[in-house]
Design a protein around this nucleic acid. Structure first.
Lengths: 178, 178
DNA sequence: AGTCAGATCGACTATATAGTCAATATGAGA
DNA sequence: TCTCATATTGACTATATAGTCGATCTGACT
């Protein structure tokens, strides 16, 4: 929660041990310092992502469907859990292992989609920036108070238009495969 | 420069006075504290934006052209001046006056474009998130080392597709009006 | 009950940082 | 040259923070 509120550089060990109602020595018994705690939190966060994406990874062969599923999931989750959303944003803008991992997955799907000639954006890195940019900014918007149950699907539509994928017949079907 | 490197919460007065080669008392003679310095820097940054956008504001009646011009300018500037880019990113993700001002301008153009029936995205707030999201993330990409002189125009194309504006004949012409 | 490895505690030192203030320097105009 | 408002200096106090360490606690196992 504290790492969701402020960046790592501004979080003190004292604040952590007070919030955890634990003595200072206990903190240093478990972690070398704040960086190690942040890494541990990042790892947990990464696991939550893997769990959310597991069904997509198994059941969906279409890279665009996988990507759409993930995009949608993340926005839904952000609306349901503000703390999670804040933490994601803090973690995504720092060059953490977590951020690299997300981007790697995304680029995997995009590369595959590109190989199938499904994208108007040919530069995979640019495509990844577009997807992540919309995702993160819409998430910030949600934290700012933007609402609407159809927000994720409208954001998704804009994202797919940006990539230039043909408006899919199969998307709905693929989503229901899960 | 220091505010470009680390967030406000992690920047110390001692670091500032050392970098400025000035005594501590001098700092407090000019500013109440770090927040006030940050506000002053934000104001300067805002002025640089106004200057960059002045031609667009005067010469362009088409809101989509204005928006495209600004988007392009900001990316070009980011490629030319890394420190500026870093500072923009730090400032844009905090809820500064600067960030609000940019968004307000953007929403103005988007509202006008929407009134002309030019956008597929009907929610102006969502549209603003899409534009800012792509802009900021592509800027981060530039800082990460992404290159290519046509990057701004390709990012712009993706952004316009996301909004769902018709691929314009007039855009080139409007840009040259300046 | 006794043992002990693992966990917790909080006082302690050292350093970093914020903010103050009286003394001094600067330079434009009389 | 003299005056004075403005600007600068750096030492100083008070507080915050990082990191250490010996004492103590806990609970599983004998």
């Amino acid at each position: 929660m504290l790492l969701a509120e402020r960046p790592l550089e501004a979080l003190t060990v004292d604040a952590v041990v007070e919030a955890a109602a634990v003595a200072k020595g206990t903190f240093y018994y478990h972690f070398q310092g704040m960086e190690e705690l942040a890494a541990a939190v990042g790892e947990k966060l990464g696991e939550s992502f893997d769990e959310m994406l597991a069904p997509a990874r198994l059941g969906m062969r279409d890279p665009v469907a996988r990507l759409s599923f993930a995009f949608n999931q993340f926005l839904e989750k952000a609306m349901a859990d503000r703390v999670w959303a804040r933490l994601v944003i803090q973690s995504a803008q720092a060059p953490t292992e977590f951020a690299r991992s997300i981007r790697a997955n995304l680029k995997g799907d995009l590369t595959e989609a590109r190989a199938q000639g499904r994208l108007k954006v040919n530069d995979v890195d640019l495509a990844a920036d577009v997807v992540m940019g919309i995702w993160l900014q819409v998430t910030r918007g949600i934290l700012q108070g933007r609402t609407g149950t159809d927000l994720p699907e409208r954001a998704l539509a804009a994202m797919l238009r940006a990539l230039g994928v043909a408006p899919p017949q199969k998307r709905k079907k693929d989503l229901e495969e899960v």
